[in-house]
Nucleic acid binder design. Structure first.
Lengths: 127, 127, 127, 127
DNA sequence: GTGGTCTAGACCACA
DNA sequence: GTGGTCTAGACCACG
């Protein structure tokens, strides 16, 4: 997978977010074995300890399972995964609308801006 | 104005963001005198040093002006203010779409979710 | 406070347990400021990172609060503290009874053994 | 016999504890032949190496005997078995009282809690 | 001075 | 080879 790391924020937290999004959107299947901490870390260009912290966090959220000496796997619980994805979506939409609200924008103005931005993106990608 | 402060992230940076949004959306008029650092700080419940830093940051962005002895005022440059607002808007929309893209969502799914979320909010606020 | 560390188990986890017991039984009062991580660590003879992990854990359990640059305090929520103490008690009693059950002991035998052990201890302490 | 295995702690050690308790409380008679390592392991759902280690440990404690070609048997020494059981009992009671002491509980409070917990268990099991 | 983060490097138990 | 832990030491943002 691709990693985007911004030095200004805690790296472990960014790793957590990206892994959560990736797994919950099907990048790894339920029950699939994950790369080892070391491999993951070197792939992302971070220290293994840092990656481990990110993975522990995901375990706390019930998204992955640790098998003491046999590596980690994505949870088998497809419902859990789905609900995590819904949660992320909902949270991001809420945060976005909150952040927009501060600017005092009318709903129709926002909708037109959004529609424009989305079509530009699709355009950029598709054409 | 209302302040939302989350202790887990740099406070000065949150103040900066909120002030920028507030000013650029007309909370203070062009040329209007701002409260003193001390008053601002006590209103927000933060250390004056912290508020000081936020204001310096905004000065760097050309939104406010420091008058040697007479405190700070919002810039007179209405165009500047407008362009700042546009910049914030554009950036927030882009960030949002980026963050959503990771989840592999189709445009029409996104639009329907957004429409729903917006109408729920309007409902809650307006009615 | 006193620290008992057994090298065979994760240190951070033992620190967590002991701090949890100590705080929840009133060793630090609600709202009281805790020693700094560094002080705590040197007092317990462990690396600051290790102590920090233990404290983070306790924060996750809602027993202590972190004030970014002003140190940590015990939660003000006396109910929370009380409920943590009850939880520890209940868990330890259950674990004990589970561990005893394996040995196939009759209730009256257990009671007499317990009563004897308790009185011996009190004797040892009181006399 | 029933096995309770918690993946987060060393498995061999849990097996050791449970076997020790089981044998010393008469689950296998003095001199009785034990199942093969392989059978034991598959029954408990663990790796044979792990079970092997647990059995070696018990041999070290004088509870079981390895007969070059004829598998393992429980020791014939009934006194030894009895004393092991007493040791476990005493140790578990001591550990429990130690762990409770940290919480600063009065003897009568402890007794009433224990009596309640025991009667609840008996109730749940017996009725 | 406070907590937070990160790295490098080492060691361990387990299977 | 796997995850887990620990240490030492450094740097940072904050107030």
């Amino acid at each position: 997978m691709e990693w985007k790391i911004d030095d200004r924020f805690p790296i472990w937290s960014q790793l957590t977010e990206q892994l959560e999004a990736y797994i919950s959107s099907g990048g790894f299947k339920p029950g699939e074995k994950l790369p080892s901490v070391r491999d993951f870390a070197s792939e992302a260009g971070v220290n293994p300890n840092t990656m481990q912290r990110a993975l522990s966090e995901l375990e706390g959220r019930g998204l992955i399972v640790t098998n003491r000496t046999a590596g980690r796997t994505v949870t088998e619980d497809a419902e859990r995964i789905k609900s995590v994805r819904q949660g992320i979506l909902r949270r991001r939409i809420e945060d976005f609308l909150d952040s927009i609200e501060e600017l005092g924008i009318k709903d129709n103005e926002l909708e037109s801006l959004l529609r424009k931005a989305i079509s530009e993106r699709s355009g950029g990608t598709v054409v």
